[in-house]
Design a protein around this nucleic acid. Structure first.
Length: 201
DNA sequence: ACCGGGATGTTCT
DNA sequence: GAACATCCCGGTG
């Protein structure tokens, strides 16, 4: 288990995103391997929440890398991003799916409607539900071993680890899901053939 | 299997 | 007032 350091996240989100595949996201004993991500690239990206400048909602995106940006969508769902780029760059990576590896019982309780384990974390809002991530976690520090984990959020310990599994040599790549503006950019990456992705491709 | 629509409320125009 | 980085359920084939 190696920590992912802050410099890892300080680079462009489109470079970091495919490297985030196969890392572990964990919170309170519930852990999953990241198998699907999307990059959002700040000012240059019409699909990004940061495109029209900083607002109260997007404040965390404009801050330092290695923090969690959590937003509320469709009146009922939370989604989580890892903030990338240097301070002020406002880029981020939406974590869209996990392959559950630990804390399965707690995840099943948190997602009683999921009938199969592959439905626990196969979407950005599903994995937040499974791990119990909410707006309370917005702004928390996700750099393991920083000694500041949880700083900026009130929800508790969320961390990203590297267990030595490398990212796929040839990840699947395609366009991002659910966007109107910025839908043309191929900034979604998946672990090929993983049954936990929100959609194949 | 696939498709269509409803839920639900914050954010920004 | 419209849009929204979604999910779930109930229809039909």
């Amino acid at each position: 288990m190696q920590p992912v350091d802050r410099e890892f996240f300080r680079r462009d989100s489109r470079v970091v995103a495919p490297e985030l595949l196969n890392k572990l996201l964990t919170r309170h004993g519930r852990t999953g391997r990241i198998v699907e991500v999307e990059a959002y690239a700040g000012f240059e990206d019409a699909g990004s929440h940061a495109y029209r400048g900083q607002t109260e909602r997007t404040t965390v995106m404009f801050g330092p890398p290695g923090h969690l940006y959590v937003y509320f969508i469709y009146g009922m769902h939370w989604c989580a991003n890892a903030v990338c780029g240097d301070d002020g760059h406002a880029s981020a990576i939406l974590i869209r799916a996990l392959a559950p590896t630990a804390g399965l019982d707690a995840m099943r309780r948190a997602r009683a409607k999921a009938r199969r384990d592959r439905d626990l974390c196969s979407g950005p809002a599903k994995l937040c539900q499974a791990l119990g991530i909410t707006g309370q976690d917005n702004g928390c520090d996700i750099v393991a071993g920083s000694g500041l984990t949880g700083n900026g959020g009130t929800g508790g310990n969320i961390q990203i680890f590297d267990d030595g599994t490398p990212p796929p040599a040839e990840p699947g790549q395609g366009t991002r899901i659910g966007l109107s503006a910025g839908a043309e950019h191929p900034w979604r990456w998946i672990v090929p053939d993983d049954p936990n992705v929100s959609r194949p491709d």
